[in-house]
Design a protein around this nucleic acid. Sequence first.
DNA 1: TAAAATTGTTAGATTAGTCTAACTATAAAC
DNA 2: GTTTATAGTTAGACTAATCTAACAATTTTA
Lengths: 157, 157
Amino acid sequence: MKKLTQSLEDYIEAIYVINLSSKVIRVKEIAKFLNVKTPSVVDAVGRLTEKGLVIHEKYGYLELTDKGYKLAKEVNDKHEKVYKFFNKVLGVSDNISKKDACNIEHYISKETMDRMIKFIKFVDTCPEGYPEWLKNFNYYAKHGRHPSKCTKNNVSK
Amino acid sequence: MKKLTQSLEDYIEAIYVINLSSKVIRVKEIAKFLNVKTPSVVDAVGRLTEKGLVIHEKYGYLELTDKGYKLAKEVNDKHEKVYKFFNKVLGVSDNISKKDACNIEHYISKETMDRMIKFIKFVDTCPEGYPEWLKNFNYYAKHGRHPSKCTKNNVSK
DNA sequence: TAAAATTGTTAGATTAGTCTAACTATAAAC
DNA sequence: GTTTATAGTTAGACTAATCTAACAATTTTA
């Protein structure tokens, strides 16, 4: 199966996300979610239907096929991981992390994704808790210089 | 001035990069660089010319205007930083770092870019040299677990 | 249950980006 | 200095993604 375009990935992810909080999916909700007009949604849904990713009863509800669900989940997982990496590791603000994750999720290769995920896990499972070096990075980002001593494991409190 | 599209950013960056190693820029070289056909280049160059970013003598050479040069350099700098972050910090392979940087450079916001740059600098200027924690991350990425002791600053050799 | 409101669809236009094929200008080689 | 090769351009087609405006189906409500 050919890769989806960025746009179609956005649509299928939107359907997935909407479906998390409501059992019923409508053209209008997708339009609202993605800030587009309904004809654009109808168009996109048509293309997703052709690919066997979505079932759409005319004038009725939409649902993801199994294949569509799987794909949508993959896209959304990527999104979540990139968001988390930007926000929790790099310390980017919530809004911008979301926005950037949303944009770049379509373009990150498996290998890079894999390293990001490992990085997040590396931080989350650090034996010393929130890692000293990450505290140091936040200090560095704020003050433009390393904290006075960082050759020893100096916990400040 | 309106932001360039991804595609136009690629074209203007290509011109900039080609220009680094050769004084003369031709339609054909751009086409080769970006893996597109010459009519696509002509088309794109036309749009860049309209925006006052490029000067193109018909059937002749191309050059960047001052404005074009400035913009192209910004795009390329972003590219370089993202590449370096993926490659040097995350440890992504050379090829994939390049490919991913090339794709996502168009979508990263200033804030995220800023944090990435700071992260690279944080690593590069670490008082202990190549940071212990980054060694630990590489170990973690390879073996799936943290090295046996990392609560002390244990230099292994 | 008929009118009104909401939601969904279709048709047609527009922009961007790409291509192939045909053509034209310039440069190189003889 | 013609011919030939190379490089650049134009025309026309195609795909994807969006929109507005007009229309159709469904649902709500009075």
